[in-house]
Amino acid sequence: MTWTSLKSRLAGAGYVASDDLAVALQLALTLGRPLLLEGAAGVGKTEIARTLSMIEDTRLIRLQCYEGLDASQAIYEWNYQRQLLSIRAAAESGETGKAVEDRIFSRSFLLERPLLAAITQAKAPVLLIDEIDRADEEFEAFLLEILSDFQVSIPELGTISAVTRPIVILTSNGTRDLSDALRRRCLYTYVEYPDRTTELAILKARCPEVEARLANQIVGFVQKLREEELEKTPGVAEMLDFAAALMGLGIADLTDDPAVLHSTLTTLLKTRTDQAQITREVASRLAGKAA
């Protein structure tokens, strides 16, 4: 499979990828390396993993990172409640200590968390490690171990090696610089906001019912809006929401009614200062330029 065919398969599932991204993804698949995606919020980093799992027809296992994420949340944890109940039941039936111990530290008492689940699937899943920059550096360190060896050691059970190698995709919003060690193990792509033609293609793929002229206006408007100095630049998801809002209100032309246009801007502008900055006049001026 070449990268162009991968790109068209992604497009078939509704994801329009840039050439850089398609090549990187293709390499990640063939070389079995994790792929690190960086970029602003709302450019479609998480979506690519979802689409990939769809076209590969496999499970998507997602690990959302946050500050303070630790091994028991990410890899595995013993099911303490079940173990305790089991001990009590054993005490009543008069089972010996050794047998109980063997039983309560077996696989059925193990709660699989995303990372362990990802390496024990029969068919290689897509493992999405979302917003890795939010996790602590400590977590990054043991993620490295799993990404290089694809095995997990559990003191009571021994080492569990990967049945299949998951397709690993990491995303980062760049709130913190990642360690060089992690970057070295991954292929890297910076995902930009899409250009006009790409974004138009995305809109066509996701909302085919929008007619061509309005689609042009929507994309042009959002592209112009991104050039304004905003606190939170609208991403692709917001653009799709905006399109859906316009469709729902039955608007055929952006320049028709400034009041309605301004009220639909709630889908694009997410802070108070941004809303104050894009007044009705500014919005209709941008719409005029975009047309």
Binding site: D19, D20, V23, A24, L27, A28, L35, L36, E38, G174, D177, D180, R183, R184, C186, L187, Y188, T189, Y190
Partner: peptide
């Protein structure tokens, strides 16, 4: 270029 870029670069 795209392939080498994915391999050799690590930040924006």
């Amino acid at each position: 270029r795209r392939a080498l870029q994915a391999v050799c670069t690590g930040c924006k």
